[in-house]
Simulated assay, not measured.
Amino acid sequence: MSTSDQQASPPRLAIPELLIGVGLLACAGAVAWQTLAIPVSPLYSKVGPKIFPYITMAGMVILSLLLILAAVRGGWQPEEEKETPTDRKAMGFVVAGLVANLLLIQPLGFTVASVIMFVLVCFGFGSRHPLRDALLGLVLALAAYFGFARALGVNIGAGLIENQLNALVNAVFGIGRG
């Protein structure tokens, strides 16, 4: 056996992993661009509405650079996973869930769009319990909605369910009564 046979070949550039890292870096650039567009009142102290988007962007940049470095070193997938064919049907359900969320959030509201997305993504990952997935998705979507709407005051897409629950919460807790 020659010395060249004993040496491992240098790792190949992992193109799919590289594309994920570059895509994440592009998303970080979009976050930076949109954060620069946030108007800031001169009344804010040094910690204003731009701080958390910038922290998020910095994390995305660090993660994307680590992903790109891993791709240059051959990727993070073990060899046996690289040989596994892509399950296009499962990927289709996940993509369908994301697209459904984008298309349905405006007309139906955050909760309904999120539940539909959750059920489709769960199906894509192999779950065959749509009722359980819908109930779990409903709990998570409502928690996220009320976390944003009530705790942070951010409207992320109120629909019929959200409007009814807001009215119920206001009636029970007497919010909005003079």
Rank of each mutant, 00 (worst) to 15 (best):
F110M: 08
G157Q: 07
A32C: 05
A167E: 10
V47D: 01
P16V: 11
G178L: 09
Q6C: 00
Q77H: 08
L136A: 11
R150I: 10
N166Q: 12
F125D: 05
V121Q: 00
A90Y: 10
P78C: 09
D133L: 09
E17W: 00
N170F: 10
P11Q: 09
R88Q: 07
Q34T: 09
S2Y: 04
P85S: 04
I68C: 01
D133N: 12
S45G: 13
A171L: 13
I105W: 04
I161R: 08
N166C: 02
G178Y: 05
F118P: 00
T3L: 15
V121T: 05
P78Y: 01
G159V: 06
I15M: 14
R177G: 07
V172L: 15
T84V: 12
S127L: 09
G126V: 03
P130I: 05
Q7K: 04
E83H: 10
L98D: 01
P107K: 06
P49V: 08
F146A: 05
R132C: 03
E80Q: 10
L131M: 14
M91V: 10
G74N: 04
G126R: 09
A134H: 00
F118I: 00
A28M: 00
P11H: 02
L67N: 02
E81S: 07
V115S: 06
V47C: 04
G124Y: 04
L102S: 06
W76P: 02
F52R: 06
I62T: 08
P49N: 11
T3D: 15
V47H: 03
A144Q: 06
G174W: 08
L135Q: 06
A167N: 12
D5T: 06
T35Q: 11
E81N: 02
C27H: 05
T111H: 00
E80P: 01
V31L: 14
K50V: 03
Q164G: 15
C27S: 14
L135R: 02
F123M: 10
P53L: 01
T86C: 04
P53T: 02
L13V: 09
W76K: 05
I105K: 04
R177C: 01
L69N: 03
T86H: 04
K46G: 06
T84W: 03
I68N: 07
A144D: 01
R132V: 14
A100I: 07
V72N: 05
A151L: 15
Q77D: 09
T3A: 14
G176R: 04
A37T: 10
G59F: 06
L36K: 04
A26L: 15
N163V: 06
G29E: 09
L66I: 05
V22N: 00
N163P: 10
S64D: 06
H129M: 12
A158C: 10
G126D: 14
A71H: 07
N166H: 11
R73C: 01
K50E: 05
S41H: 09
Q7S: 09
G29Q: 08
L25Q: 08
D5S: 13
A143P: 12
G147I: 09
F173C: 07
G176H: 03
S2E: 08
G157H: 07
A167P: 03
E79W: 00
A143S: 13
H129A: 10
V72Q: 03
A167I: 03
N155A: 11
G157Y: 07
K82E: 11
D133G: 10
P49Q: 10
P49Y: 13
S9I: 01
M117E: 02
M57Q: 14
N163A: 14
G109F: 05
A149K: 08
G159A: 13
A28S: 13
V139Q: 02
K82F: 08
